[in-house]
Amino acid sequence: MLSQESLALIDKEIAKYPPEHKQSAVMGALRIAQAEKGWLATETIEYVADYLGMPPIAAYEVATFYNMYDLKPVGRNKVTLCTNLPCQLQGADKIAEHMKAKLGVDFGETTADGRYTLVEGECMGACGEGPLCLHNNHKMHSHLTPESLDKLLDDLK
């Protein structure tokens, strides 16, 4: 279900917590599983729950509560743009329009070729560098301009 590499990473997360509290590793484990699979299918969540010895429903609650977990397939490149007030004041609305026009999709949609998914994000805690976006949850790109965004999107295959 998950690769040996992913399981080894999950084991490192488990080791951070007291042995009787393996459930604490569920957020890390779901993140690792999602990174391998691209998104979290119900059977992936159940597998993670089983690996951690917790009820599947408890893992499902976590996967549905935190918005960086994807419960349906996304494009190869998920681009999450913060549009909250500080970023908005610094020009995020224009970046959002530019991005939607360039890719021909709205927030929450995936391009037909499966290359990009656009997501409207909430505060990422880096407002001084806004407008900014996250690529596939983990890589932040800041000080976006229409030009730098074009280059970023073109580079994401």
């Binding site: 459930q23 604490s24 890390g28 408890a58 976590v62 549905t64 977990y69 505060c123």
Partner: peptide, 26 residues
């Protein structure tokens, strides 16, 4: 040890944070 959130503002509230750290919804 480091523990990461995954997109939930409310977890900045200290008891929600504890729930999250225990592997639950925050």
């Amino acid at each position: 040890h480091a523990h990461h959130g995954y997109g939930a503002y409310v977890c900045g509230e200290e008891t929600a944070l504890l729930e999250s750290l225990e592997g639950k919804k925050g």
